[in-house]
Write a protein that binds this DNA or RNA. Structure first.
Length: 464
DNA sequence: GGAACTCGCCAC
DNA sequence: AAACGTGGCGAGTTCC
């Protein structure tokens, strides 16, 4: 596949972006090596103990008896051979190459208690070896200087390496609290993140201009709530009820975004019911799945609406998908088709930001690339401007990182409001003037840490 | 003994 | 007709 900036504007964006990101890289982020080393030791101890525990189990002994060579408990190849060849267990999932999978989900489904120890070891090693070790390797004078690169990604997004600043654990609490507690602002400063609200959805809307989607984005209605209502038969939807919020998140991540990216109802159904709804494959029994506040279970609730199994839920979601594209967002659907046809005729796709990809691409690629890429270019444009202004105003605050649709700052406590004001102006006011094809209002969300607080201590901060 | 591969898993 | 996009990176394994 060939890719290139196709306008001077696109070329300039990457030229200035490279210079700005080089400064971001030079700024760096403070790292607490004492805490890191303490966690390294603690994890090593835990891993050793769990390994010991695992090795006295009947499961391990049987595994070792099954083969002549010494077992390496870290080898998924050996584990798959033992489980699926020797013990003849049927895996619930296979890998791309058709072998039985040994990922977290598949091993948990086997309900072999000893395997939980193996998964625990895998998780602890991930934290220690992928994150802490790479942080330690890259530390210079108490700072990390992650690389931010613009020349690797097919969609013209950025990437990060040495260490990768863009995939530090956030959702899973244990991993988050170990890794992010290593990273700090400079002494007396605060960490702050500013990110665009639902940027990719807004950029997609600029391409397809679906009136229903534009209405959602312009009037701030809750699209994910509406879809959750429809998928899960909720007649009174209320985001502030925890169970409803759970189902809303499920609809958002397990269906809406998946459909936007090109997934289809069958995979979404399994994911929604099993991963998000905690229901089993096959038939459902009373009391199974996540619980509502009144004690009812998701299985009971769906049964009341005529759905008592995964296959019935699949049929239900097929209808939802049909409605989603043909009734709710038909103009979005039509854009996907005409955009795909255009690529098939010309052999390339143009981004609104002036970049061009040509060569062999799948349909999903053709639909996703210009959205993902242009969304990042919005962030990069704002980052270049904000970086320039912080220097021009001789401020103490610095940009120290970039995560696709977010900018990470190391801010002087007296400059918090100024940095927000300056950034907000660039992100929501001037950016849509520069890229006049943006057709919905942009929003900024802030997360702020206390003075000398680590990256684990950021809290949502209301922008005035 | 290193390159290239698979697999798993972290982020958006 | 087919079936979710982009990365980085570690460990194990296989190839040469």
């Amino acid at each position: 596949m060939l890719m290139h900036p196709n306008t001077t504007e696109a070329y300039d964006l990457f030229h200035n972006g490279t210079l700005a990101l080089a400064e971001v890289e030079r700024n760096g982020i403070r790292i607490d090596m004492d805490f890191l080393n303490e966690q390294r030791r603690r994890l090593t101890k835990k891993i050793k103990m769990t390994e010991k525990d695992f090795k006295i189990s009947a499961f391990y002994k049987e595994w070792q008896r099954s083969t002549r060579t010494p077992v390496n408990i870290n080898s998924d190849v050996q584990l798959a051979r033992y489980l699926y060849k020797h013990k003849q267990i049927e895996p619930s999932k296979t890998t791309k190459s058709g072998k039985g999978s040994t990922d977290d989900e598949t091993l948990k489904a086997l309900k072999i208690p000893e395997l939980d120890k193996l998964l625990r070891i895998r998780k602890l090693k991930k934290i220690r070896d992928t994150y802490l070790e790479s942080f330690a390797r890259e530390e210079v004078n108490g700072l990390l200087h992650p690389n931010f690169l613009l020349n690797f990604v097919r969609t013209f997004r950025g990437s990060s390496a040495n260490p990768n600043f863009q995939n530090v654990p956030k959702r899973e609490q244990e991993a988050m609290l170990i890794t992010r507690k290593c990273l700090f602002p400079r002494v007396g400063h605060r960490l702050m993140e500013l990110d665009f609200g639902s940027l990719e959805v807004r950029i997609a809307a600029a391409y397809h201009k679906d009136p229903t989607m534009l209405k959602y984005l312009r009037e701030g209605h809750d699209m994910h709530g509406d879809i959750a209502k429809q998928i899960f038969f909720l007649d009174k939807f209320d985001k502030s009820i925890p169970s409803h919020d759970k189902l809303r998140k499920a609809a958002k991540n397990g269906f809406v975004f998946a459909e936007f990216y090109g997934d289809w109802y069958k995979k979404c159904a399994a994911n929604l019911a099993c991963t998000w709804g905690q229901l089993p494959k096959g038939k459902w029994k009373s009391g199974q799945g996540i619980l509502f506040e009144d004690g009812h279970s998701l299985a009971d609730h769906l049964k009341q609406n005529g759905i008592g199994s995964l296959s019935a839920f699949e049929d239900h979601l097929e209808k939802i998908e049909e409605h989603f594209w043909n009734k709710r967002f038909p103009v979005y659907r039509d854009w996907k088709e005409t955009h795909w046809k255009k690529y098939q005729q010309t052999g390339y796709i143009d981004f609104y930001t002036g970049f061009r990809c040509s060569g062999l691409m799948s349909k999903n690629d053709v639909i996703n690339y210009p959205v993902q890429g242009a969304a990042f270019h919005c962030l990069l444009w704002a980052l270049i401007r904000i970086n320039f202004l912080l220097k021009q105003y001789k401020m103490e605050s610095r940009i120290i990182g970039q995560i696709h649709d977010a900018i990470v700052f190391d801010v002087h406590p007296d400059e918090v409001e100024d940095v927000i004001r300056i950034s907000k102006k660039e992100m929501v006011e001037l950016l849509p003037k520069h890229y006049s094809w943006i057709n919905t209002p942009l929003t900024v969300e802030a997360d702020l840490g206390p003075v000398d607080g680590s990256w684990a201590s950021l809290k949502s901060y209301k922008i005035s």
